[in-house]
Design a protein around this nucleic acid. Structure first.
Lengths: 242, 242
DNA sequence: GAAGAAAACATGTATATACATATTAATGCC
DNA sequence: GGCATTAATATGTATATACATGTTTTCTTC
């Protein structure tokens, strides 16, 4: 192909974003076989080298797995990333081999107040959905979730079936995030939290705050409160050399 | 150059590891100007493309900054990585614009007991160095550090001047880590910890455990205890598309 | 038909080349 | 000297090509 790229983003970025979308949206589920490099090169009208570089990056990001002679496959979700994983409470519970259940406690649509506006970085006029829910392991409280969803960015969330399962799982299917920020705190349980989590007041809890943005704007702000000293966040890293 | 790579690792990996070592070891300090791509290509006897791919990766890892026509420079340490940063207590304190000081409380060399051996993943016969120290901000306790160093991997640590400054800074200069694991807990301060950190007993604290390995084996196990609810760990991420 | 050798195949790495893009340096003009 | 224009330069992206490396398939041979 001759070179004439009229758009502003590079071919590399375009192809990477396209493949990534297909994977994280579930259009290509785990185990799905991707087209061969030469086929992708033909369909995107680029050279194999360009496709290969994109694939290499996706491999390092853990989204795909490649085997010589066999081809390329969407990776099994062994944690989309070390950090994304820490807020998939259901997977966390199941990894402990405990039965998981989910209890929606409240779900309210309202205008953002000043507090919400600050947390979500939205103007005060925005509609937001506020959710409070408990993640249960073996019938006992495992984690308290308090969530704000920006209906300006995700209007369809207003009618989502959040009574059936965690909002996080619903969101990640529909709204691919392009940035996320986590803050982790140790807090002392307030009376309110202690009652919900069925622990004594003033016990130390692990608090994880997560904010995500899509290209369309802020998506959600969520606070996970884990009771007591048993819980840990684990993150493993290797430097660039990987 | 004709192709004849006798070694087992690729040129890419070799060059990446070499440049990374020069940067993290401080041989090339922040702001240092790297040779041009063509010069590196000449000195490593590879093509510019190969060097360019390495440089692209180092740029994404945040180790270098590149400007067209100007060249390539070692990046200022705006946190070597979001996670490495969380255990550079001195930088953390200075970022808050507070005067930093360091107080070594104890430093003992001994054989690893069963507990140490489990934490560091070393046999019980290994010599270890155990350090206890306080990081102070504005003269007040900011963070308690409890550290085990594997003298089997880092024998020279036995004579390092750990009274002068944090062991972490000394180690990162000498022993480039190839893998790290973090665990984060909320704990309730024991009487011992409360006394050292000058807080009330049973206050919630944030506990960060960090283990690092070099290619030669386990390097260090360290526990940072931050008092109270003021402290947060912050991590920002963007998915592969970056 | 089973075992082993050879071919086919998909990815992995590296090269040489070309041109785009951003920024600095040099130049010419008044 | 000041200012716009042009040239030089280093990085950024993409291509076509070549060969290496593991796997899987196919083909021999017994």
């Amino acid at each position: 192909m001759t070179k004439s790229n009229t758009s502003r983003s590079t071919l590399h970025q375009t192809i990477l974003a396209d493949l990534e979308r297909k994977i994280v949206s579930g259009e290509w589920p785990p185990g799905h076989k991707l087209p061969f490099e030469v086929e992708l090169a033909r369909s995107y009208e680029v050279s194999r080298m360009t496709v290969n570089k994109v694939m290499t990056q996706l491999t390092k990001a853990g989204l795909i797995e490649r085997r010589k002679r066999s081809g390329t496959f969407v990776a099994k979700p062994r944690g989309q990333s070390a950090i994304l994983e820490i807020t998939d409470v259901e997977a966390e519970v199941r990894a402990l081999n405990l039965p998981y259940s989910y209890k929606l406690m409240s779900s309210v649509i309202r205008k953002a107040n000043r507090h919400d506006a600050a947390l979500l970085e939205v103007p005060g006029t925005t509609d937001i959905l506020e959710i409070r829910a408990l993640h249960m392991a073996h019938g006992e409280p495992f984690c308290l979730e308090e969530r704000l969803i920006n209906l300006g960015t995700v209007p369809e969330a207003a009618h989502a079936p959040f009574a059936d399962g965690p909002a996080g799982a619903w969101l990640v299917q529909r709204v691919p995030w392009s940035a996320a920020e986590h803050k982790i705190f140790a807090i002392t349980a307030t009376a309110d939290i202690a009652r919900l989590l069925e622990i004594a007041a003033r016990v130390a809890c692990l608090l994880i705050q997560r904010r995500t943005w899509s290209t369309a704007g802020p998506v959600t702000f969520v606070r996970f409160t884990y009771p007591g000293e048993k819980h840990a966040i684990v993150a493993s890293f290797t430097p660039a050399a990987g």
